[in-house]
Every structure is written in structure tokens, then in C-alpha cells.
């Protein structure tokens, strides 16, 4: 997977030296699967702890492996627990691979509360800051 970001500690994505603390400072917004199979995973700054951040859109294109936990609702108010990697044939998600341990063939794995998850592998993935919405924190 060709990405323009890395996973820092399990709560963070890092792009161009900027740390996005998705666990502590953002709320999960939505997951969208486009007609061509591409994915969009959106996070918005938390009202109390997201000051200085813009909404984030993770764009995955050329998805060749994708899975979500049973009954995952794409707009339910999930809380992101951690981010890591998993070999695409490994269903044991008790533990995740770190950035240092992962290879380009591994899934990117987003763990949410109550055992929910989103995992995928794609040709490319990019992290984009989107314009703030009216209800975003300053």
C-alpha cells in the first residue's frame, strides 16, 4: 500500500511531520464505499479536544481487501480505539502490527469500541485535511 502517512503510536496518524491524534482529538464521522470500491473514512475534530484540527478524510483507492466487523454501521457513533496493521489472512485481531513491523502487503486496521473494526488494503491511501464545517471547533 502506497500511503502518504504513517501510523505513529496506536492513537496517531502522521503526515508530513504533523501528528493527528485520532483517538484523543477526533470523532469518527463516517465510512463510505464508493461505486468503484474506493473507500472514504472520515473523522471530525472533537468538540472539546480537537482545537486546531480540521476534519480528516482518509482516501483509499484500488482496494483489494476490505472487511468490517459484523453489524458495523457506517455512521454509528463509534469511538476509535487504535490503529495498526494486520496481515490480510490473519483474523486474530487481539494484537496488531506496528508501523515498524508492517509490510506493504498488510491491511491497515482501525479498531473501534466493542470489537468493531474496519480493515483494508489498497493500492494507495492518502490523508486529506478538509475545510472545517460550521460546527467544527475553532
Amino acid at each position: 500500500m502506497d500511503k502518504d502517512f504513517t501510523v505513529g503510536q496506536a492513537n496517531e496518524l502522521i503526515k508530513a511531520g504533523r501528528i493527528y491524534d485520532l483517538h484523543n482529538c477526533f470523532d469518527f464521522d463516517y465510512l463510505t464505499i464508493l461505486e468503484d470500491g474506493d473507500l472514504r473514512l472520515a473523522f471530525k475534530p472533537n468538540a472539546s479536544h480537537g482545537e486546531g484540527y480540521s476534519p480528516l478524510l482518509l482516501c483509499a483507492e484500488g482496494v483489494d481487501h476490505f472487511a468490517v466487523s459484523p453489524n458495523f454501521g457506517p455512521t454509528t457513533a463509534y469511538h476509535l480505539e487504535e490503529i495498526g496493521y494486520k496481515s490480510c489472512d490473519d483474523e486474530d485481531d487481539n494484537w496488531l502490527l506496528s508501523q515498524r513491523q508492517a509490510t506493504v502487503a498488510d491491511d491497515l486496521f482501525f479498531r473501534f469500541n466493542d470489537g468493531h473494526y474496519v480493515r483494508f488494503r489498497s493500492q494507495s491511501a492518502s490523508l486529506i485535511e478538509t475545510p472545517p464545517t460550521p460546527d467544527s471547533p475553532p
Binding site: 503510536q9 496506536a10 484523543n24 482529538c25 472533537n46 479536544h49
Partner: peptide
């Protein structure tokens, strides 16, 4: 893992 600041999780504040 110690979260010094940020959101509550599982009903536990930082």
C-alpha cells in the same frame, strides 16, 4: 499506554 489528555474512553476521563 497512558493518555495524558484528550477524550474520555469507556467512560474514563483522561
Amino acid at each position: 499506554e497512558v493518555d495524558l489528555a484528550g477524550k474520555s474512553h469507556g467512560g474514563v476521563p483522561t
